[in-house]
Design a protein around this nucleic acid. Structure first.
Lengths: 215, 215
DNA sequence: ACCTGAACACCGTTCAAGT
DNA sequence: ACCTGAACACCGTTCAAGT
């Protein structure tokens, strides 16, 4: 083991990640700046660059930490029937993401979760294969479910954001200006739109997908 | 008509919106800053604030302009059969959005497109009602389809973004570090992942949803 | 009424210097 | 090896002043 030399570190990657989680939990991802984070760990913004390459790497670190730490369903408790297993895993995935919706913005890329979140695609693809799908179709089934889940989380996050920063004036204006002749259905539901869109429809969509995608 | 008084305007809202479209088309949404936009219209950043309240209003304006201007399917050409009509409208919606994926980031909120884009939800809800759904279920069917569509567009946009700014190193690292014992299915598809995720699976998912949601 | 310049309070990141 | 301060090149937005 080589002798450790030089100045002993004041902060660690783990400190940074912990502080970043706290900032996000308290004030949202938008508040997570290098300067704010530095203040939180009792250091300077520039010191952070000794532990992470840039902000993107920090976010990836954060993501992975979250995925690894989040409780997932016990393998034995998953239903044996393939379709039900996909529903169970996807529901768990959505639940994990719902706790930190900013994740979807960070890693919407490439249809993949972080390294720590690979359990979900693994299990969904595995169940799809068990249901009799060829590998190609199993992967595409997973991607379709992922797109649906990411879209739902994104919409929820955006709606929550709007709600937090004052009334959703835009939607109200849309319905106020609505031409009832051109858009009779929307005019009809207009008054109930807020109530209806507050409902959780994830499961309904998920089951429709699973029924349509798995043989 | 009251006499128009004061200095005649040098730039109009229309000029601003046109220039903004050009900037986005050329260099992406990230490049759309008030200063850049001002340069583009031959003015100063501050002059813009005389025509739009803030950047958010500008984006909404942009969104609406796009939705209004985009060609949508002729009413007569839509299939008569309700399920097929939903598929046709949703496909057109996705196609319209694919042309400007940044839209999804801007208005992912509230499950609604802009004022100019209301045609899509109107037609989808209408077809869902024609298929025999109650209003509540028709709205939730629309929302589910919207979430799926927004998620797909978002993933495509993110993937395109990564591709533009150099190789998708992250995904490669994920597969390189993959523990084949813990994730046998992913290890198996790993080499084909890029190829498989390049495929367009929107239609498959959409038809699964429609089949599962409409009676 | 419309436009301008200077300024404010921020960003992420780099670089040379300290311990 | 690790941390710091000053600086760079940006943001969106406000405000007082010009025409």
């Amino acid at each position: 083991m080589p002798a450790r030399t030089g100045r002993p570190p004041k902060i660690s990657r783990a400190d940074i990640v912990t502080a970043a989680h706290r900032v996000i939990e308290e004030d949202g991802v938008a508040s997570l700046t290098m300067r704010r984070l530095a203040r939180e760990v009792g250091s300077t913004a520039m010191a952070l660059y000794h532990h992470v390459r840039d902000k993107e790497e920090l976010l990836l670190l954060l993501l992975d930490d979250y995925a690894t730490g989040h409780a997932r369903p016990a393998e034995e408790e998953l239903p044996g029937e393939p379709r039900e297993r996909v529903v169970a895993v996807a529901t768990a995935m959505r639940e994990a993401l719902a706790g930190c919706p900013w994740i979807v913005d960070v890693l919407r890329a490439d249809d993949l979760l972080s390294v720590g979140g690979l359990w979900y695609p693994e299990k969904i693809i595995d169940a799809a294969l068990a249901a009799g799908l060829a590998m190609e179709d199993a992967v595409s089934a997973y991607r379709i479910i992922w797109h649906y889940t990411a879209g739902e989380i994104g919409a929820r996050a955006a709606a929550a954001g709007r709600r937090a920063e004052g009334g959703s004036t835009y939607r109200e204006r849309v319905f106020a200006e609505l031409d009832a002749g051109a858009f009779p259905r929307l005019a009809e539901v207009g008054p109930r739109w807020a109530e209806l869109t507050a409902r959780d429809t994830y499961d309904r969509g998920l089951r429709a997908l699973v029924a349509g995608l798995l043989p």
